[in-house]
């Protein structure tokens, strides 16, 4: 998929752990981990809303489109 998930970057910026975010948005760590590692096939708008609210960010900060043939990118 040509969408990169930058959740780990945003978490690092906010000095927040995945577990803490999971507690705040009411999603299991396992599910957030699926999102963070880029294994997710879809993201609910409600989830995106909750994460953006807690991390005080825009959806574009979390999701970045990268061309499939971009240098250094490997397809999953």
């Amino acid at each position: 998929m040509a969408i990169d998930i930058r959740l780990d970057h945003v978490l690092l910026d906010r000095r927040m752990t995945l577990t803490e975010l999971a507690d705040r948005v009411g999603i299991t760590v396992a599910n957030l981990s699926i999102l963070k590692t880029g294994k997710a096939r879809a993201v609910r708008l409600a989830t995106l809303d909750a994460i953006c609210r807690e991390l005080d960010c825009q959806p574009g900060d979390l999701l970045v489109h990268v061309a499939d043939d971009a240098p250094g990118r490997t397809s999953r």
Binding site: K39, A40, R41, A42, V43, R44
Partner: peptide, 8 residues
């Protein structure tokens, strides 16, 4: 089921 499981 996979779709459901991998939808966050």
């Amino acid at each position: 089921e996979d779709e459901q499981r991998l939808t966050v």
